[in-house]
C-alpha cells in the first residue's frame, strides 16, 4: 500500500515537472527553439476545409540559420528561403525573451492575454504541452499552441477569434529532430542562407503616424527600410502600408481575409494615398488603425 502511495506521489511529481515552468517560460522556449534546433518535418496549414502541406527544414551551421519551406500539396515546388545570424534578435521574440517571472514584460503580456498551460495529446508522435493564450480585449486574436515537451518547439498552432472559431491551423504531422549538418550538405541546393546581417535595424521613417494603436503594440525596428511600419504586442503582428494611388477602382474602403490574416484599406483622395493595414488581427482592429492614420502638419 505504502509502495502504491509512493508511486502515485512520484507519478504526480513527474507530471508536474513540465508545469513547474510557467506559461511565459514556455513561450520563451518556443521562440528560441525554432531557431536553434535542427529539424525537418512536414507541416500542414489549414484554413476552413482547405489543407496544404509543406516540407520544412531548418539547420544551424556555424552560427547561421538555413531553412526552407517547400509546398508539397500543389504540384509546384516553391522554395521559400530565409535565414540569418542566430545571434540576430528580433523585437517580437525579444519581448518574449524578456518574459520571466514577474518582469515588466511578463506583466505587460499578462495585461493583454490570459496565459494558461493545459494537458495536450501528442503531436507528430511527440509528447506536447498545451498553451492557451486568450486576449483580454477585442483587438487581438487568441492562440492555442501545442509545444514539444522536450524542446519547446511549436508543434501545433491554432489562431482563434473571440468566438472560439479556429481561423487557421499549423500542425506538424512528421517531425525529425535528428536532421543535421550532413543533411544540410545533401540538401544544400534547397537551403539558402540570408545575406549577412549588419545592424539591428530601426523603425522606418515616414511622414505619417497612427493616432490609435491597441494597448501593448509597439513599432518594430526592421532592416528593410520599406516605408511601412509593423507593430507587435509580442504575439500578434500587423503592418501599416501607405502607398500612392491613382487608381479610380480603389477609391473606397475595401477589405480582404484569408485565414487569420486580414487587410483593411482606405483611400485619402486629397493626398492620393491608400492606407492598408495587414496582419493577423481582427478586422475591427485593422480598420480602426487604418482610419486613424494621419499626417501631422
Amino acid at each position: 500500500m505504502r509502495c502504491r502511495v509512493i508511486l502515485a506521489v512520484a507519478a504526480l511529481a513527474f507530471s508536474q515537472a513540465s508545469w513547474a515552468n510557467g506559461p511565459e517560460t514556455w513561450l520563451k522556449r518556443m521562440t528560441d527553439s525554432h531557431r536553434t534546433l535542427n529539424y525537418q518535418g512536414v507541416v500542414t496549414y489549414q484554413v476552413d476545409d482547405r489543407l496544404s502541406s509543406f516540407k520544412v527544414s531548418h539547420v544551424v551551421k556555424d552560427g547561421r540559420e538555413y531553412e526552407s519551406l517547400e509546398a508539397l500539396s500543389h504540384g509546384e515546388h516553391e522554395v521559400i528561403r530565409q535565414g540569418h545570424d542566430i545571434s540576430c534578435v528580433h523585437p517580437g521574440p525579444e519581448l518574449l525573451h524578456l518574459l520571466a517571472g514577474d518582469s515588466p514584460e511578463a506583466k505587460q503580456l499578462q495585461k493583454l492575454y490570459h496565459l494558461s498551460l493545459r494537458e495536450s495529446g501528442s503531436v507528430a508522435g511527440r509528447a506536447a504541452i498545451g498553451l492557451s493564450i486568450q486576449p483580454k480585449d477585442v483587438y487581438r486574436l487568441g492562440y492555442r499552441l501545442a509545444l514539444d515537451k522536450e524542446t519547446g518547439l511549436l508543434l501545433r498552432s491554432e489562431i482563434v477569434n473571440k468566438r472560439g472559431k479556429v481561423l487557421e491551423r499549423f500542425e506538424y504531422v512528421v517531425l525529425d529532430l535528428s536532421f543535421d549538418e550532413a543533411a544540410l550538405e545533401r540538401d544544400e541546393s534547397q537551403l539558402i542562407a540570408h545575406p549577412p546581417v549588419g545592424e539591428q535595424g530601426s523603425v522606418p521613417e515616414v511622414n505619417w503616424r497612427v493616432s490609435w494603436l491597441p494597448d501593448g503594440f509597439t513599432p518594430l525596428a526592421v532592416r528593410d527600410q520599406a516605408p511601412s511600419i509593423s507593430y507587435t504586442d509580442g504575439l500578434a503582428v500587423f503592418t501599416v502600408f501607405v502607398e500612392s494611388t491613382q487608381s479610380a477602382a480603389s477609391q473606397s474602403d475595401s477589405h480582404m481575409r484569408r485565414g487569420a490574416s486580414v487587410s483593411y484599406s482606405t483611400t485619402h483622395k486629397s493626398r492620393g494615398v491608400r492606407v492598408s493595414v495587414v496582419g493577423e488581427i481582427p478586422m475591427l482592429t485593422a480598420r480602426q488603425v487604418a482610419l486613424g492614420v494621419e499626417w501631422p502638419e
Binding site: H58, S230, E280
Partner: peptide, 11 residues
C-alpha cells in the same frame, strides 16, 4: 517581418 517576430518563425 511577421515571421521574424511572431514567435512562429518561417512556417
Amino acid at each position: 517581418r511577421a515571421s521574424l517576430n511572431n514567435g512562429q518563425g518561417f512556417v
